[in-house]
Design a protein around this nucleic acid. Structure first.
Lengths: 206, 206
DNA sequence: TCGTTTCGAAACTTAAGCGTATCGAAAAAC
DNA sequence: GTTTTTCGATACGCTTAAGTTTCGAAACGA
């Protein structure tokens, strides 16, 4: 392993002080190791710096030089999780909703993303800073996209004009999440997003 | 505090061996302390026997005489959580569904019950025995009730005959759970159950 | 080349918590 | 009253991990 280890994390204009620069590769390895362990279901409490260092192939010193404690590392790692969200295509609201639901379905099957949801839903009172950052980075942007989509549908007449947007959004997201989890990951049907959207558009009554 | 401490947990016919009987009061205090700490958002990992003993006002010995380790205590404590579920009244399916949703809404606002959901959804691979027991005790019975309710609606014509029961159930439960959590506990509107059921019965399309 | 800084590895101190053992007191059966 | 068992309290040995320090080696700028 005699790679040249392209170090250098410094931003373009930052005046580089003398000495060996910090390894960007090590930094990435640390974040990745943290996210991997989060993805395996570990909470903040059972995550250990030593295990992260071992998995990342890094000394504990290298971690503590960048983050002053476990929670700070945890926050930074989770904050990098904001997965891309499809912009509206401009087609029908139904199609755009389906595209969004596909992303939600994928996330519901992804351990890392699921962990983010779990944090946001259950740790509000214990780690308010953490929840706030996660919410800003990963929850709010999506909420905004779906909200705009629903409003657009109300304007174009594709959705009923008296729609309760918050409730409709909870229906869409909650249904996908709950169904995906309750049916086991194996039942990640490729047409789930379509079925959910149509199911809600049509209603279940007669 | 000179109460007589009505000990005696022995079942009616069990041959009581000599000696001081185990205190049922201590047992209840231990379970309650465990559930309280679970309700405060603690996972299995960060729950400590010593903290439980301290909160229950009990010696560690008293705990270890009843459960051989932390997980066993955890399982027993969670297994006592099965909150009552309303039986179908025999009225309209809509009314029965609303009654069920009210229970789900209450649970979504209850930290203890929320924790059970969190366990069932996130710890399946790490604590399969635990999840299995929780599922049997708290999840399956309710799922059966709602499933029967939806089937009844399909039979009576109150619901569309081609309904996807699993998806509809996920919609109902997922919507209540997601909405309650995303709106903050303050927004526990008294008419949420009605709105959710009617929302889904009518659909959101035009 | 020389000074500076980071690197991974290892040793260290401190603290928490598990599970066990021991203690005198209390509560039952006989 | 005697025996048996549980009670809460406390101390113990043990493991894990946090966070710090030290070390020689490596990577940069000057």
């Amino acid at each position: 392993m005699t790679t040249t280890d392209e170090t250098q994390a410094g931003g373009a204009g930052t005046a580089r002080s003398a000495g060996r620069p910090r390894s960007a590769k090590a930094e990435k390895a640390i974040i990745d190791a943290t996210l991997d362990m989060i993805g395996e279901g570990m909470g903040l409490f059972e995550l250990s710096i030593e295990a992260i260092a071992a998995r990342a192939g890094v000394g504990k010193t290298t971690i503590y030089r960048r983050w002053c404690n476990k929670e700070d590392l945890f926050v930074d790692a989770v904050a990098t999780l904001k997965s891309p969200f499809p912009p509206p295509t401009g087609g029908s609201v139904r199609d755009d909703l389906i595209a969004c639901m596909r992303v939600f379905q994928r996330d519901a099957n992804d351990a890392r993303s699921r962990c983010v949801m779990s944090i946001a839903m259950n740790e509000a009172e214990r780690h308010p800073r953490l929840v706030e950052r996660v919410s800003q980075a990963a929850i709010e942007p999506r909420k905004a996209v779906v909200t705009a989509l629903l409003r657009r549908g109300m304007a174009t007449g594709e959705l009923r004009p008296d729609l309760d947007v918050a409730l409709a959004m909870s229906s869409l997201v909650g249904t996908v999440m709950w169904y995906t989890r309750s049916q086991g990951e194996a039942a990640s049907a490729p047409d789930l997003a379509e079925r959910v959207v149509d199911h809600l558009l049509a209603g279940i009554g007669t």
